[in-house]
């Protein structure tokens, strides 16, 4: 492989990795906050893609312009999912883990059904947008503009998340609730409110990724599954609950996948990512940056 080709693969991998990290960070945030693995995460991504598509169809505004609206919508959806489903799953006295898995899995199937009901199982796409189909040429390395935009959004989101967690009262409440759910009630923090905001935030983050994906990817009711699987691997690889572990792991997964695609048939490239996950957790059972 020439240096040029290597840089091309590396750049594509890093851009896709930033997007994977953005998809995964919401999952990681929610897990860190309340030990819930959300099996409907891929479906939230899919909803954000359809929301972008639907709003684009209705208003013919560019997806970039629609981003704030879709993100806000996803925030509300996340909070609703908490109040409508997850809150009850957490009340279970026995086999809490399984109840969470299957309550959120049921939600995922329900959302898929709704998407099929309203949009049909057909593949949709946004054929024309400001960024779609355009590439950036940096010294012979071609970078598709939608992915560059996605990478920037991802970096901004992580920076914002860092400020939020580190500098605001809400961030402190998140951290405190994560440490000790019982004790926060004593200092007047409403646990339900923090959880709902955490879910809103987590789902809004995957919503950002959904808008970016809608620009350059096909939209259909089952689009979430493969991305969700990568997100689980990213979150576990980085270490459950570690927000910045998700960023690092996302980048690693993106690059490994891009490198694997140069030697393996396209359908097999995920195998490299899966083997990487197994290799890491067999040596470090709590992922790269996990606290166990």
């Amino acid at each position: 492989m020439t240096l040029q080709a290597f840089l091309q693969v590396l750049a594509s991998g890093l851009l896709m990795g930033l997007l994977y990290a953005l998809i995964a960070v919401g999952l990681s945030l929610i897990f860190g906050l309340m030990d819930v693995v959300n099996f409907a995460h891929g479906e939230f991504l899919m909803v954000a893609m359809y929301a972008t598509f639907g709003l684009w169809l209705a208003t013919s505004l560019d997806p970039v312009v629609l981003m704030p609206a879709v993100t806000a919508l996803m925030f509300v959806l996340g909070a609703l999912a908490y109040f409508g489903v997850v809150r009850f799953a957490m009340r279970a006295r026995t086999n809490v883990g399984m109840v969470q898995i299957f309550a959120t899995f049921g939600l995922a199937v329900l959302i898929q059904g709704l998407a099929q009901f309203f949009f049909s199982p057909d593949y949709r796409s946004i054929p024309k947008s400001w960024l779609g189909g355009k590439t950036l040429d940096i010294a012979g390395v071609f970078l598709p503009l939608p992915q560059v935009f996605g990478g920037l959004i991802s970096l901004l989101a992580f920076a914002g998340l860092y400020l939020l967690m580190d500098r605001t009262d809400f961030g402190k409440a998140l951290e405190a609730t994560r440490e000790d759910q019982g004790a926060v009630a004593l200092v007047g923090i409403d646990r339900n409110r923090v959880f709902a905001l955490g879910w809103g935030l987590g789902v809004a983050l995957v919503g950002l990724a959904g808008v970016v994906l809608a620009i350059f990817y096909y939209i259909h009711p089952h689009v979430g599954g493969p991305f969700a699987l990568i997100a689980y691997v990213v979150v576990a690889l980085g270490g459950f609950g570690s927000v910045f572990g998700a960023l690092a792991a996302g980048l690693i997964v993106g690059v490994i996948e891009a490198l694997a695609a140069t030697v393996l048939p396209p359908a097999m490239k995920s195998i490299a990512v899966y083997l990487l996950y197994l290799g890491v957790v067999f040596v470090r059972p709590s992922g790269l940056f996990g606290r166990l």
């Binding site: 489903v85 299957f102 309550a103 059904g113 099929q116 009901f117 199982p121």
Partner: peptide, 16 residues
């Protein structure tokens, strides 16, 4: 997608 809606809701309701 009606079958998926019913199936998903059923799983959710029973497990909750």
């Amino acid at each position: 997608g009606l079958d998926l809606i019913i199936y998903g809701a059923l799983i959710m309701i029973i497990s909750l």
